[in-house]
Design a protein around this nucleic acid. Structure first.
Length: 276
DNA sequence: CAAGAATCCTGTCAGC
DNA sequence: TGCTGACAGGATTCTT
């Protein structure tokens, strides 16, 4: 479930294990994911020192010595695994595996193959075609109610769909959009241009921050015992809870509980009583 | 231009 | 148990 908080937590886990290390071996078993990996990826990784990490939207950037960075997206089903060298056989759908100079292996598993990997010059990371059009980071100070209102002005699409548009704000996905709208008490079908952003923006930030905190506090060094990086248990307030009671409302007949509707092909969960 | 649908791929789960 | 269909956290590309 990689949305911004999960990607952030995966990135921190990768940084804890890889930063400063030299990649001794890079194995690419399958290169045709969302797009084909760049030619020479394995060769470029082999022998490289990992200088640092950053996240942009749902992308992870891993800076290498020698002037370029690895751009990684987990897609829908991408996961990163960490294990001691030789501790296990490769998992099914483990398309890439790196071995470090201190004896660890990092695997990239992605059954649905919607993920992607590319190389980009470090000096121009944000110029990459996948990053160039992205909207603001929701946790930046610069992302304010005013900024969001300007981006939504005149738009007649539902606010739910607008918040999933990475050009408007970058990093939200289906879960956190549902959660933020619920917390802000805004109907997902409300026209984007008529959204009370002063109520919404603080809830977007709080929702994301709480999830990142949950990821950090529930994992030792961001790694679960099975070696999986960055995925954590989280109690959603509405997401996936169709038919269950709304946690803020009295029960029936006053509130019938969490409802689900489909907007542009994706499930939206919300409380019909609180989200007007 | 904007909005919605179709699309890529595989795994899982509910229902019969 | 086995089959079928619906659905899944993303984001691009194609239609309308």
């Amino acid at each position: 479930m990689p949305e911004l908080p999960e990607v952030e937590t995966v990135m921190r886990g990768l940084a804890a294990r890889l930063q400063g290390r030299v990649i001794r071996r890079a194995e690419v078993r399958r290169a045709d994911l969302r797009w084909s990996f760049p030619q020479g990826l394995a060769a470029r990784l082999t022998g490289a020192r990992v200088l640092g990490f950053r996240r942009r939207a749902k992308y992870i950037l891993m800076r290498l010595d020698g002037g370029d960075s690895v751009l990684l997206h987990l897609g829908m089903s991408g996961r990163m695994l960490i294990r001691l060298r030789g501790a296990n056989d490769p998992m099914p759908h483990e398309h890439v595996a790196l071995t470090t100079d201190d004896g660890w292996e990092v695997g990239f598993v992605d059954p649905r193959r919607f993920g992607s990997i590319d190389l980009v010059p470090t000096a121009d990371e944000d110029g990459h075609r996948l990053l160039a059009g992205l909207g603001p980071e929701p946790l930046d100070r610069a992302f304010t109610a005013k900024v969001l209102a300007a981006a939504l002005a005149g738009r007649r699409t539902p606010i739910k769909a607008a918040l999933l548009d990475q050009r408007i704000v970058a990093g939200l996905g289906n879960i956190y959009v549902c959660e933020a709208l619920y917390r802000a008490g805004i109907a997902p079908s409300r026209l984007a241009g008529e959204t009370p952003t002063r109520r919404l923006v603080p809830e977007i930030k709080a929702t994301l921050l709480e999830a990142i905190e949950a990821g950090g506090s529930s994992l030792r060094d961001y790694v679960q015992p099975d070696g999986e990086l960055g995925y954590f248990q989280h109690a959603w307030r509405v997401y996936g809870r169709e038919g269950e009671p709304c946690r803020k409302c009295p029960g029936p007949p006053i509130c019938t509980g969490v409802a689900r509707l489909v907007q542009s092909g994706r499930s939206t969960f919300y409380c019909p009583r609180l989200q007007a």
